[in-house]
Design a protein around this nucleic acid. Sequence first.
RNA 1: GUGAGUAUAGCUCAGUCGGUUAGAGCAUCAGAUUGUGGUUCUGAGGGUCGUGGGUUCGAGUCCCAUUAUUCACCCCA
Length: 457
Amino acid sequence: MSIQKPSIPKGTRDFSPAEMNRRNYIFGVIRHIFEQHGYMPIETPAMENLTTLLGKYGEEGDKLLFRILNSGDFLSGVDSADLTIANHQKLSGKISEKGLRYDLTVPFARYVVQHRNEITFPFKRYQLQPVWRADRPQKGRYREFYQCDADVIGSDSMLNEAELIIMADKIFSKLDINVVIKINNRKILSGIAEIIGHPDKIIDITVAIDKLDKIGVDKVNEELESRGLDKTSIEKLQPIINLSGSNTEKLNQIRKVLSESADGNKGIEEVEKILSLISETKLSNQIEIDLTLARGLNYYTGAIIEVKAADAGIGSLSGGGRYDNLTGIFGLPGISGVGISFGADRIYDVMLERNLFPESTAASTKVLLVNFGDKEEMVCLKLADELRAKGINTEYFPDNIKIGKQFTYADNKQIPWVIIIGETEMTNKTVQLKNMSTGVQSTAQYHELSEILSNDL
RNA sequence: GUGAGUAUAGCUCAGUCGGUUAGAGCAUCAGAUUGUGGUUCUGAGGGUCGUGGGUUCGAGUCCCAUUAUUCACCCCA
């Protein structure tokens, strides 16, 4: 066997220490805000039964599921007639029973149904875990990536929508990313489709309108026509396509079009309610009604939320919405949920591109003690432990090598301080303390160290 | 699923019209400097030019196939 070049599957990544520190910073901010609002952590397995996953994400989603081949003799029970290309779908069902999770919402719904007797409703949970999609990778799109979900299940109140939006605003403002929070409502979209007499065309309509900025009104109308809408319907859609102004102005324009639709009016009412609840809070980011939001249309039934980086080419950083009956298919009907998901990897990409990570994410070790050999060892070990006890991340270099090399090590690891204890220092019961960024070195007493090191940032 | 690009040192990339022994920067290692890093100087190691075939006296370079990878569409965090 020849030596093979090591590699990892496309769309997956290794995370080196510097990247992990930055990623953990993002997770830390998100977790902190979630917990501040009373969300509790759960985890679910990387793999789920395919029966749990299939049919929840539409036809496209089913294709993007990673399926796990059954262990052992996976062909037992398969007859040769199944082993044809035409039968691949049927075959796949026989040789694969498990799949990697595609998102965190469906496993959460499964979890809620399975644990319904242990859960107090409304149940507020958060979950920071990787998900997998067998997509073609490209910029900002991976086959393995982390979602950070917060959901409330078992409460119909719009306060939840408002809270999720406020949390999103806090998270992005804490991370220093300028974003636009976009909201929409499935009921408004249904209302539009109802008014023009094409309830089946919601997706076609939103996809076409979404291209307005790129291709202009005329082309959008052409596209609507090619997607099977008649002239009268397109005419009725014009006020929707040309929607503009403040959120209130937009709502008024929509209201005129949807006056005949019960569903549509309900949707408008919901959006207004959410906006009014948020108006009590001072948001750092802009919030904007956008009817082209049609994400997750397969299961969202009310509010739809999406967060995009202001002036960025990357896709959305966060998305969510309300789903009235997600647990219904698992045998627990009538429970409504609303949630939001943050894409940690895209947030990372945007922050890296804009240089938004704080300096402190670069290093975790605060001070390195230089190794001078056996005589100094005990003093160093004792001092190192004292510093750790004071909350200072400290390491002692394990080998007695040239101290130049030990400095290079500190430099590469971006450790801000180095402590040198040699024969002279041992006798005097002092240390040489060197600041690696200024290059300034001075003599210090043991008891001064923790204060100097913890004051410095 | 559709389309386009790329593949040469650990990394980023040069390599002319097809022509002798394939180069640079960065990184690594060693030394200048056995109690001081990041800056400087000197030197060293490191290559099946993705893989397989073809054209040719001769291929990193041209042609075909294949694999990997990147970007875009669809869709999505």
